[in-house]
Simulated scan of single mutants.
Amino acid sequence: MEETPWSRPSIEDLKHVLESFGNSDAVNVREVDRLELSVPAEIKTSRGNIIPAMTREISRQGLGMLHKGMLNPGEVTVKLASETREFEYRVKIMWCTPCDNGMFISGGEFLTKPED
Rank of each mutant, 00 (worst) to 15 (best):
L71M: 06
P98Y: 09
E57R: 10
E109F: 01
G108R: 05
G69H: 14
G108Y: 01
I50P: 00
E88I: 04
Y89G: 01
Q61G: 09
K68D: 00
G108A: 04
Q61F: 02
T84Q: 14
I58A: 12
T55R: 04
T55L: 04
N72M: 10
R90S: 11
E57V: 06
G102T: 02
L80M: 06
S106T: 07
R85G: 01
E83D: 14
I50Y: 12
G102K: 02
L111D: 06
L63A: 01
E75C: 05
L71S: 03
S82D: 15
E109L: 12
G48K: 10
Y89T: 00
A81M: 12
G102D: 00
V78F: 06
M94D: 15
P98Q: 12
M94R: 14
M70E: 10
M94Q: 14
I58Q: 11
C96L: 04
L80E: 00
M54L: 12
F104Q: 05
L63G: 01
M70K: 09
S82C: 15
L63Q: 02
C96W: 06
V76W: 10
T77A: 15
V76Y: 11
S82W: 15
G108Q: 03
G48R: 11
L111A: 08
G62Y: 01
V78R: 02
G62C: 04
H67K: 09
T97P: 04
Y89K: 02
K92F: 11
L63N: 01
E57Y: 00
I50D: 05
F110R: 15
M70W: 07
G62R: 05
E88K: 11
T84K: 14
T55C: 03
E83V: 05
M54R: 11
F87C: 06
N72E: 13
L66A: 13
T84A: 13
C96K: 02
M54P: 04
A81K: 14
F110Q: 15
I50G: 03
R56D: 04
R56F: 00
P98I: 15
P98K: 13
L63R: 02
G69M: 14
P98H: 13
N72R: 11
E88P: 00
E75W: 03
T97H: 12
G69E: 13
P98S: 12
E88A: 04
G107K: 11
S106N: 06
G107R: 09
G74W: 11
I50C: 14
K92T: 03
E83P: 03
R56K: 09
E86S: 15
L111F: 07
L66D: 10
G107H: 07
F104I: 06
A81V: 10
K79A: 07
T55P: 06
W95F: 12
P52E: 04
I58L: 15
S106P: 12
M103K: 08
G64A: 13
R56Y: 01
C99F: 05
L80R: 00
E88Y: 00
I93P: 08
M94S: 13
Q61H: 09
E86D: 13
Q61V: 07
M65D: 01
V91L: 12
M65F: 10
